[in-house]
Design a protein around this nucleic acid. Structure first.
Lengths: 223, 223
DNA sequence: CGGACGTTATTTGTATACAATAACTGTTCA
DNA sequence: TGAACAGTTATTGTATACAAATAACGTCCG
């Protein structure tokens, strides 16, 4: 994706995550072109990508709206992520080199450092966490799997905006990572899969608890 | 996707599947615009979609090539499809209404009709088969799952061009469908998942056998 | 009043011209 | 010969103007 398109994508995405727009609000390509400072052509390219990521949706008459995710949507995404990333962990366990495992250890060390700050450095934690999971997906060596997961992993970030992580949550995550590393070192795919499964399933419940039982979901323009 | 874009997509896709172009052959947007009879703007939209489906790939310098799938690529896609569609079958078993199951039976009946022709009507078989699987994915009621699967299901069709189905293969497929319907009627998710798993795994081996152990894979422009 | 219709304004879709970038080709100089 | 460079050609990226489609609005007729 080239300069203007990439820029448009990043700015629109940031705009959506910033909370300046509401779910189901209509957007026009012209607006977005103004916001991003490029013409409609690259905006359209960026919008298509954001549609693919389900951050934007179109009505049946091609008008553009900010997506509103229902509880079911979120649960679905966590389920799919779990299924795919367990598969990734299984494959990674059969493929990770000794060096790569060492790198994972380093990343998890950095993650623990971030937790150990007072107050915990959540931004650094999230970055290290992202890096850890990404390395596993990479090691799975399955390009389509990676492509699918990248969409799912980035998405829930949208709603996490005001979310507060408890220190216990963060610590438990780092322990899960330790155990994943142990599974990789033992080259045990079943173990890796199982740990990844509980790791992500717990993440879902933590997330769901913090968000509460709100709903949402219907598209305004009809769909 | 609107008129010109959709048309461009369909024509380019048909062009790729027709065998008039070779893997790793370079294409230009201008060429495709001429072939499809629309301007470059909708062609670019179609191309991006085909890139997403991995029928086209870009070199590191943004030049466009016909994708060349290695044996690993194909195996990867079958694996992912199996994982996702087993999940779909499981969910479908918990959701399919009695009417929907009746519709599945009708579709499978049509599929058997197609087989019973002399010679077997492979085109009609494929269409009924597509319809059968699509109905199951629909019933799973998981939009992102459907989106992912649609990419995977359509893709291997590319290589199947000259493929010849044996009568036994076709008959076994219809029997698998019978058993899936039985599992749905019994509302047994585990059964449905298991049948779907063996159904698709066998399809992979049938496919692999017919294609042979050829390779392919490297992208010309570098990447 | 109220609903069907036609008109206007808004928004998306397409074509085209031009700009930026990458590939190619031939030439020069060790 | 052959490696670096310059100029040319080919290809993709962006902006803009215009066409098509859709929504919004007001008016007329019942």
């Amino acid at each position: 994706m080239s300069r203007a398109s990439q820029q448009a994508y990043a700015k629109i995405r940031a705009h959506l995550l910033s909370g300046q727009v509401q779910p189901n609000e209509q957007l026009t390509e012209d607006q977005l072109a103004q916001i991003t400072g490029v013409s409609r052509t690259p905006v359209r390219e960026a919008v298509r990508r954001l549609e693919d990521e389900l951050l934007l949706v179109r009505s049946d008459t091609k008008r553009l709206f900010v997506a509103d995710w229902s509880r079911d949507d979120i649960e679905e995404m966590f389920s799919l992520r779990q299924m795919l990333e367990c598969h990734a962990a299984e494959r990674a366990a059969q493929r990770l080199s000794r060096e790569k495992i060492t790198q994972l250890e380093a990343v998890n060390h950095a993650l623990k450092d971030a937790i150990a700050q007072d107050p915990p450095d959540v931004a650094r934690f999230l970055e290290a966490n992202r890096c850890f999971h990404e390395a596993i997906v990479d090691a799975a060596d399955s390009p389509r799997l990676g492509q699918m997961l990248s969409k799912l992993v980035e998405a829930p970030v949208v709603l996490r905006t005001a979310r507060t992580y408890s220190l216990d949550d963060l610590r438990q995550s780092s322990r899960d990572h330790d155990e994943l590393i142990a599974a990789f070192t033992a080259r045990d795919p079943d173990w890796a899969r199982a740990v990844m499964g509980s790791h992500l399933r717990r993440a879902f419940h933590t997330f769901a608890r913090s968000v509460g039982p709100q709903t949402g979901g219907a598209v305004p323009g009809g769909k």
